[in-house]
Design a protein around this nucleic acid. Structure first.
Lengths: 168, 168
DNA sequence: CGCCTGACTAGGGGATGCCATAGCCAGAGA
DNA sequence: TCTCTGGCTATGGCATCCCCTAGTCAGGCG
Protein backbone atom coordinates (compact mmCIF):
# COMPACT_ATOMS: atom_id res chain seq x y z
CA UNK A 1 0.00 0.00 0.00
CA UNK A 2 1.27 3.43 -0.81
CA UNK A 3 -1.40 5.06 1.30
CA UNK A 4 -0.04 7.70 3.59
CA UNK A 5 -3.13 8.09 5.68
CA UNK A 6 -6.63 6.73 5.63
CA UNK A 7 -8.30 8.73 2.87
CA UNK A 8 -11.57 7.12 1.89
CA UNK A 9 -10.81 5.62 -1.49
CA UNK A 10 -11.76 2.26 -2.91
CA UNK A 11 -9.83 -0.81 -1.83
CA UNK A 12 -8.19 -2.89 -4.52
CA UNK A 13 -8.05 -6.58 -3.67
CA UNK A 14 -6.29 -9.55 -5.21
CA UNK A 15 -4.07 -9.08 -8.24
CA UNK A 16 -5.33 -5.55 -8.71
CA UNK A 17 -3.45 -4.42 -5.64
CA UNK A 18 -0.34 -4.38 -7.82
CA UNK A 19 -1.82 -1.67 -9.96
CA UNK A 20 0.80 -1.60 -12.65
CA UNK A 21 0.29 -5.25 -13.48
CA UNK A 22 -3.25 -4.54 -14.51
CA UNK A 23 -3.97 -3.31 -17.98
CA UNK A 24 -6.51 -0.53 -17.81
CA UNK A 25 -7.35 -0.72 -21.49
CA UNK A 26 -10.23 -3.06 -20.87
CA UNK A 27 -11.75 -0.60 -18.39
CA UNK A 28 -15.44 -0.12 -19.03
CA UNK A 29 -15.23 3.51 -17.98
CA UNK A 30 -12.69 4.16 -20.73
CA UNK A 31 -14.91 2.37 -23.23
CA UNK A 32 -17.94 4.35 -22.16
CA UNK A 33 -16.00 7.57 -22.63
CA UNK A 34 -15.14 6.60 -26.20
CA UNK A 35 -18.87 6.69 -26.92
CA UNK A 36 -20.17 9.55 -24.78
CA UNK A 37 -16.93 11.21 -23.73
CA UNK A 38 -17.59 14.43 -25.60
CA UNK A 39 -19.64 17.29 -24.33
CA UNK A 40 -21.90 17.32 -27.37
CA UNK A 41 -22.63 13.59 -27.26
CA UNK A 42 -23.69 13.69 -23.62
CA UNK A 43 -25.79 16.82 -24.14
CA UNK A 44 -27.51 15.20 -27.10
CA UNK A 45 -28.36 12.30 -24.82
CA UNK A 46 -29.74 14.76 -22.27
CA UNK A 47 -32.05 16.10 -24.96
CA UNK A 48 -33.09 12.58 -25.88
CA UNK A 49 -33.95 11.94 -22.22
CA UNK A 50 -36.05 15.09 -22.28
CA UNK A 51 -37.92 13.72 -25.28
CA UNK A 52 -36.31 15.59 -28.15
CA UNK A 53 -36.44 13.64 -31.39
CA UNK A 54 -35.99 15.92 -34.33
CA UNK A 55 -32.68 16.82 -35.86
CA UNK A 56 -32.94 20.56 -35.73
CA UNK A 57 -34.38 20.53 -32.22
CA UNK A 58 -31.32 18.59 -31.08
CA UNK A 59 -28.95 21.03 -32.73
CA UNK A 60 -30.69 24.15 -31.48
CA UNK A 61 -31.34 22.99 -27.92
CA UNK A 62 -27.83 21.66 -27.40
CA UNK A 63 -26.41 24.78 -29.00
CA UNK A 64 -24.23 23.09 -31.60
CA UNK A 65 -24.12 23.49 -35.35
CA UNK A 66 -26.09 21.18 -37.57
CA UNK A 67 -22.86 19.76 -38.95
CA UNK A 68 -21.70 18.70 -35.50
CA UNK A 69 -25.18 17.44 -34.62
CA UNK A 70 -25.23 15.29 -37.77
CA UNK A 71 -21.83 13.76 -37.03
CA UNK A 72 -22.54 13.17 -33.37
CA UNK A 73 -26.03 11.76 -33.89
CA UNK A 74 -24.67 9.38 -36.50
CA UNK A 75 -22.09 8.23 -33.95
CA UNK A 76 -24.74 7.68 -31.30
CA UNK A 77 -26.88 5.72 -33.76
CA UNK A 78 -23.88 3.62 -34.82
CA UNK A 79 -23.03 2.95 -31.18
CA UNK A 80 -26.60 1.83 -30.53
CA UNK A 81 -27.85 4.53 -28.14
CA UNK A 82 -30.36 5.95 -30.58
CA UNK A 83 -32.24 4.62 -33.57
CA UNK A 84 -33.28 6.52 -36.65
CA UNK A 85 -36.88 6.00 -37.47
CA UNK A 86 -38.96 7.51 -40.26
CA UNK A 87 -42.26 9.03 -39.26
CA UNK A 88 -44.94 11.06 -40.88
CA UNK A 89 -47.28 13.69 -39.53
CA UNK A 90 -50.45 14.07 -41.62
CA UNK A 91 -49.97 16.68 -44.31
CA UNK A 92 -46.22 16.69 -43.75
CA UNK A 93 -43.44 14.90 -45.50
CA UNK A 94 -41.66 11.90 -44.04
CA UNK A 95 -38.99 12.74 -41.52
CA UNK A 96 -36.40 10.94 -39.49
CA UNK A 97 -36.55 10.96 -35.75
CA UNK A 98 -33.92 9.86 -33.27
CA UNK A 99 -35.34 7.66 -30.54
CA UNK A 100 -33.69 6.23 -27.45
CA UNK A 101 -32.87 2.53 -27.44
CA UNK A 102 -32.73 0.58 -24.16
CA UNK A 103 -28.96 1.04 -24.30
CA UNK A 104 -29.41 4.78 -24.57
CA UNK A 105 -32.02 4.85 -21.86
CA UNK A 106 -29.71 2.99 -19.49
CA UNK A 107 -27.22 5.82 -19.72
CA UNK A 108 -29.66 8.05 -17.83
CA UNK A 109 -28.28 7.25 -14.35
CA UNK A 110 -24.83 8.39 -15.45
CA UNK A 111 -26.24 11.62 -16.86
CA UNK A 112 -28.31 12.22 -13.73
CA UNK A 113 -25.28 11.52 -11.55
CA UNK A 114 -23.22 14.09 -13.42
CA UNK A 115 -26.06 16.59 -13.29
CA UNK A 116 -26.50 16.05 -9.58
CA UNK A 117 -22.80 16.58 -9.00
CA UNK A 118 -22.94 19.77 -11.06
CA UNK A 119 -25.99 20.92 -9.09
CA UNK A 120 -24.09 20.48 -5.89
CA UNK A 121 -20.73 21.96 -6.74
CA UNK A 122 -21.02 24.08 -9.86
CA UNK A 123 -24.41 25.79 -9.74
CA UNK A 124 -24.44 29.57 -9.62
CA UNK A 125 -25.95 31.63 -6.82
CA UNK A 126 -29.48 30.93 -8.04
CA UNK A 127 -29.00 27.26 -7.39
CA UNK A 128 -29.62 24.45 -9.84
CA UNK A 129 -31.89 25.32 -12.77
CA UNK A 130 -34.06 22.22 -12.78
CA UNK A 131 -35.20 19.62 -10.33
CA UNK A 132 -35.82 15.98 -11.10
CA UNK A 133 -38.54 14.28 -9.10
CA UNK A 134 -40.30 10.95 -8.97
CA UNK A 135 -43.62 11.27 -10.75
CA UNK A 136 -45.18 8.86 -8.27
CA UNK A 137 -44.35 10.53 -4.99
CA UNK A 138 -43.03 13.96 -6.04
CA UNK A 139 -39.88 13.47 -4.02
CA UNK A 140 -36.67 14.68 -5.65
CA UNK A 141 -34.52 11.92 -7.10
CA UNK A 142 -30.87 11.32 -6.52
CA UNK A 143 -28.27 8.86 -7.71
CA UNK A 144 -26.37 6.68 -5.30
CA UNK A 145 -24.13 3.69 -5.27
CA UNK A 146 -25.94 0.88 -3.52
CA UNK A 147 -25.25 -2.79 -2.94
CA UNK A 148 -27.65 -5.59 -3.73
CA UNK A 149 -28.77 -5.58 -0.12
CA UNK A 150 -29.87 -1.98 -0.61
CA UNK A 151 -27.21 -0.29 1.50
CA UNK A 152 -25.92 3.00 0.22
CA UNK A 153 -22.19 2.47 -0.21
CA UNK A 154 -19.54 5.15 0.30
CA UNK A 155 -16.41 5.14 -1.80
CA UNK A 156 -14.34 3.99 1.17
CA UNK A 157 -16.48 0.87 1.49
CA UNK A 158 -16.08 -0.23 -2.11
CA UNK A 159 -13.76 -3.07 -3.01
CA UNK A 160 -12.48 -3.54 -6.53
CA UNK A 161 -11.52 -7.02 -7.68
CA UNK A 162 -10.87 -8.84 -10.93
CA UNK A 163 -13.96 -10.35 -12.43
CA UNK A 164 -14.19 -14.02 -13.23
CA UNK A 165 -13.89 -14.21 -16.98
CA UNK A 166 -16.92 -15.35 -18.88
CA UNK A 167 -14.83 -17.28 -21.37
CA UNK A 168 -11.66 -19.29 -20.85
CA UNK B 1 -46.28 17.58 -26.85
CA UNK B 2 -44.45 16.39 -29.92
CA UNK B 3 -44.47 12.82 -28.71
CA UNK B 4 -45.60 10.38 -31.34
CA UNK B 5 -45.97 7.42 -29.07
CA UNK B 6 -45.33 6.67 -25.43
CA UNK B 7 -41.55 6.20 -25.29
CA UNK B 8 -40.38 6.26 -21.71
CA UNK B 9 -38.62 9.58 -21.43
CA UNK B 10 -38.71 12.17 -18.68
CA UNK B 11 -41.73 14.44 -18.42
CA UNK B 12 -41.13 18.16 -18.51
CA UNK B 13 -43.60 20.13 -16.45
CA UNK B 14 -44.38 23.81 -16.10
CA UNK B 15 -42.51 26.38 -18.19
CA UNK B 16 -40.02 23.75 -19.28
CA UNK B 17 -42.61 22.11 -21.46
CA UNK B 18 -41.92 24.87 -23.98
CA UNK B 19 -38.39 23.65 -24.41
CA UNK B 20 -37.10 26.44 -26.57
CA UNK B 21 -37.97 29.06 -23.99
CA UNK B 22 -35.58 27.49 -21.57
CA UNK B 23 -31.92 28.39 -21.76
CA UNK B 24 -29.85 25.26 -21.34
CA UNK B 25 -26.70 27.18 -20.56
CA UNK B 26 -27.31 26.96 -16.83
CA UNK B 27 -27.61 23.19 -17.07
CA UNK B 28 -25.56 21.48 -14.41
CA UNK B 29 -24.76 18.60 -16.71
CA UNK B 30 -23.14 21.01 -19.15
CA UNK B 31 -21.19 22.60 -16.33
CA UNK B 32 -20.03 19.23 -15.06
CA UNK B 33 -18.82 18.35 -18.54
CA UNK B 34 -16.71 21.50 -18.66
CA UNK B 35 -14.77 20.10 -15.71
CA UNK B 36 -14.67 16.37 -16.37
CA UNK B 37 -15.87 16.20 -19.95
CA UNK B 38 -12.61 14.92 -21.34
CA UNK B 39 -11.54 11.32 -21.36
CA UNK B 40 -8.28 12.02 -19.58
CA UNK B 41 -9.89 14.03 -16.78
CA UNK B 42 -12.39 11.31 -15.96
CA UNK B 43 -9.75 8.57 -16.13
CA UNK B 44 -7.52 10.57 -13.79
CA UNK B 45 -10.43 10.70 -11.37
CA UNK B 46 -10.82 6.93 -11.71
CA UNK B 47 -7.20 6.58 -10.65
CA UNK B 48 -7.77 8.92 -7.74
CA UNK B 49 -10.72 6.76 -6.65
CA UNK B 50 -8.41 3.74 -6.81
CA UNK B 51 -6.00 5.52 -4.51
CA UNK B 52 -3.36 6.77 -6.93
CA UNK B 53 -1.65 9.91 -5.69
CA UNK B 54 1.64 10.39 -7.43
CA UNK B 55 2.14 12.28 -10.64
CA UNK B 56 3.91 9.64 -12.64
CA UNK B 57 1.58 6.90 -11.43
CA UNK B 58 -1.34 8.92 -12.76
CA UNK B 59 0.30 9.44 -16.12
CA UNK B 60 1.41 5.82 -16.54
CA UNK B 61 -1.78 4.19 -15.31
CA UNK B 62 -4.08 6.37 -17.34
CA UNK B 63 -1.81 5.97 -20.34
CA UNK B 64 -1.33 9.64 -21.11
CA UNK B 65 1.83 11.67 -21.48
CA UNK B 66 3.21 13.58 -18.56
CA UNK B 67 2.49 16.83 -20.34
CA UNK B 68 -1.20 16.00 -20.61
CA UNK B 69 -1.24 14.69 -17.05
CA UNK B 70 0.27 17.93 -15.76
CA UNK B 71 -2.26 20.09 -17.58
CA UNK B 72 -5.23 17.96 -16.64
CA UNK B 73 -4.23 17.55 -12.98
CA UNK B 74 -3.76 21.29 -12.70
CA UNK B 75 -7.26 21.74 -14.07
CA UNK B 76 -8.71 19.28 -11.59
CA UNK B 77 -6.90 21.00 -8.72
CA UNK B 78 -8.11 24.41 -9.91
CA UNK B 79 -11.65 23.10 -10.17
CA UNK B 80 -11.44 21.73 -6.62
CA UNK B 81 -11.65 17.98 -7.20
CA UNK B 82 -8.11 17.32 -6.05
CA UNK B 83 -5.67 19.07 -3.75
CA UNK B 84 -1.94 19.19 -4.06
CA UNK B 85 -0.24 18.30 -0.85
CA UNK B 86 3.44 17.99 -0.05
CA UNK B 87 4.51 14.85 1.71
CA UNK B 88 7.73 13.23 2.67
CA UNK B 89 8.77 9.63 3.00
CA UNK B 90 11.73 9.14 5.33
CA UNK B 91 14.99 9.28 3.42
CA UNK B 92 13.23 10.71 0.37
CA UNK B 93 12.78 14.24 -0.81
CA UNK B 94 9.55 16.14 -0.45
CA UNK B 95 6.98 15.36 -3.11
CA UNK B 96 3.57 16.52 -4.15
CA UNK B 97 0.63 14.21 -4.03
CA UNK B 98 -2.82 14.69 -5.50
CA UNK B 99 -5.55 13.83 -3.04
CA UNK B 100 -9.31 13.69 -3.51
CA UNK B 101 -11.36 16.47 -1.98
CA UNK B 102 -14.97 15.87 -0.92
CA UNK B 103 -15.99 17.44 -4.23
CA UNK B 104 -13.83 14.95 -6.09
CA UNK B 105 -15.07 12.06 -4.02
CA UNK B 106 -18.66 12.94 -4.76
CA UNK B 107 -18.02 12.44 -8.43
CA UNK B 108 -17.61 8.71 -7.79
CA UNK B 109 -21.27 7.82 -8.40
CA UNK B 110 -21.07 9.36 -11.86
CA UNK B 111 -17.92 7.43 -12.66
CA UNK B 112 -19.40 4.21 -11.33
CA UNK B 113 -22.57 4.80 -13.33
CA UNK B 114 -20.58 5.23 -16.53
CA UNK B 115 -18.49 2.16 -15.74
CA UNK B 116 -21.57 0.11 -15.03
CA UNK B 117 -23.09 1.18 -18.33
CA UNK B 118 -19.88 0.25 -20.12
CA UNK B 119 -19.83 -3.10 -18.33
CA UNK B 120 -23.29 -3.81 -19.59
CA UNK B 121 -23.09 -2.67 -23.19
CA UNK B 122 -19.47 -2.34 -24.21
CA UNK B 123 -17.55 -5.14 -22.50
CA UNK B 124 -15.81 -7.67 -24.72
CA UNK B 125 -16.55 -11.39 -24.69
CA UNK B 126 -14.66 -11.89 -21.43
CA UNK B 127 -17.12 -9.68 -19.64
CA UNK B 128 -16.26 -6.67 -17.49
CA UNK B 129 -12.69 -6.59 -16.21
CA UNK B 130 -13.38 -5.58 -12.62
CA UNK B 131 -16.19 -5.89 -10.13
CA UNK B 132 -17.08 -3.35 -7.48
CA UNK B 133 -18.53 -4.72 -4.27
CA UNK B 134 -19.60 -3.47 -0.89
CA UNK B 135 -16.83 -4.20 1.60
CA UNK B 136 -19.42 -4.84 4.29
CA UNK B 137 -21.57 -7.48 2.65
CA UNK B 138 -19.57 -8.47 -0.44
CA UNK B 139 -22.54 -7.85 -2.68
CA UNK B 140 -21.81 -6.15 -6.00
CA UNK B 141 -22.69 -2.48 -6.09
CA UNK B 142 -24.74 -0.69 -8.69
CA UNK B 143 -25.88 2.84 -9.34
CA UNK B 144 -29.52 3.72 -9.57
CA UNK B 145 -31.76 6.73 -9.60
CA UNK B 146 -33.85 6.67 -6.46
CA UNK B 147 -36.30 9.03 -4.84
CA UNK B 148 -36.15 10.17 -1.24
CA UNK B 149 -38.63 7.50 -0.33
CA UNK B 150 -36.15 4.92 -1.58
CA UNK B 151 -38.01 3.85 -4.72
CA UNK B 152 -35.89 3.08 -7.71
CA UNK B 153 -37.11 5.46 -10.40
CA UNK B 154 -37.20 4.66 -14.12
CA UNK B 155 -36.62 7.41 -16.66
CA UNK B 156 -40.27 7.40 -17.62
CA UNK B 157 -41.26 8.21 -14.05
CA UNK B 158 -39.02 11.24 -13.73
CA UNK B 159 -40.45 14.72 -13.93
CA UNK B 160 -38.31 17.73 -14.69
CA UNK B 161 -39.37 21.11 -13.40
CA UNK B 162 -37.83 24.53 -12.86
CA UNK B 163 -36.26 24.93 -9.47
CA UNK B 164 -37.26 27.64 -7.10
CA UNK B 165 -34.43 30.13 -7.20
CA UNK B 166 -32.35 30.51 -4.11
CA UNK B 167 -32.02 34.25 -4.60
CA UNK B 168 -34.54 36.75 -5.88
C1' DC C 1 30.13 19.13 -5.63
C1' DG C 2 28.13 16.58 -8.92
C1' DC C 3 24.97 12.80 -9.98
C1' DC C 4 20.45 10.87 -9.98
C1' DT C 5 15.51 10.80 -9.63
C1' DG C 6 10.94 12.52 -9.35
C1' DA C 7 8.15 15.99 -11.03
C1' DC C 8 7.31 18.43 -14.01
C1' DT C 9 7.81 22.11 -18.60
C1' DA C 10 8.69 23.08 -23.56
C1' DG C 11 8.19 22.52 -28.42
C1' DG C 12 6.47 20.46 -32.60
C1' DG C 13 2.84 18.05 -35.01
C1' DG C 14 -1.40 15.21 -36.08
C1' DA C 15 -6.28 14.32 -35.04
C1' DT C 16 -10.55 15.69 -33.38
C1' DG C 17 -14.15 19.09 -31.96
C1' DC C 18 -16.35 22.97 -32.86
C1' DC C 19 -17.89 27.15 -35.44
C1' DA C 20 -19.69 29.79 -39.50
C1' DT C 21 -21.37 30.05 -44.02
C1' DA C 22 -23.15 27.94 -47.93
C1' DG C 23 -25.22 24.43 -50.66
C1' DC C 24 -28.08 20.25 -51.77
C1' DC C 25 -32.19 17.30 -52.07
C1' DA C 26 -36.88 15.45 -51.41
C1' DG C 27 -41.48 16.27 -51.11
C1' DA C 28 -45.75 19.06 -49.98
C1' DG C 29 -48.35 23.09 -51.28
C1' DA C 30 -49.62 26.67 -54.79
C1' DT D 1 -43.91 23.29 -62.43
C1' DC D 2 -42.08 26.35 -58.98
C1' DT D 3 -41.19 27.36 -54.49
C1' DC D 4 -40.46 26.59 -49.77
C1' DT D 5 -38.96 24.00 -45.82
C1' DG D 6 -36.91 20.39 -43.14
C1' DG D 7 -33.05 17.78 -42.91
C1' DC D 8 -29.15 17.33 -43.76
C1' DT D 9 -23.81 17.73 -46.34
C1' DA D 10 -19.62 20.49 -47.70
C1' DT D 11 -15.87 23.64 -47.00
C1' DG D 12 -12.66 26.24 -44.46
C1' DG D 13 -10.75 27.72 -40.27
C1' DC D 14 -9.63 28.07 -35.17
C1' DA D 15 -9.04 25.69 -30.73
C1' DT D 16 -8.33 21.79 -28.01
C1' DC D 17 -6.64 17.19 -27.15
C1' DC D 18 -3.23 14.22 -27.52
C1' DC D 19 1.30 12.21 -28.86
C1' DC D 20 6.44 12.17 -28.92
C1' DT D 21 10.88 13.78 -27.71
C1' DA D 22 13.53 16.54 -25.21
C1' DG D 23 14.89 19.71 -21.35
C1' DT D 24 14.61 21.84 -16.63
C1' DC D 25 14.73 22.13 -11.69
C1' DA D 26 15.02 20.81 -6.85
C1' DG D 27 16.91 18.15 -3.44
C1' DG D 28 18.97 13.93 -1.23
C1' DC D 29 23.00 11.10 -1.57
C1' DG D 30 27.63 9.66 -2.55
Amino acid sequence: MDQIDAEPVATLVGPLARRDDWAADRCSLAKALEVVGTRSAMLLMREAFYGTRRFDDFARRVGITEAVAATRLRGLVDAGLLTRRPYREPGRRTRQEYVLTPMGRDLAPAAVALMQWGDRYLADADGPPVVLAHAGCDEPVHVAVTCAAGHEVALGDVTVSVARRRTA
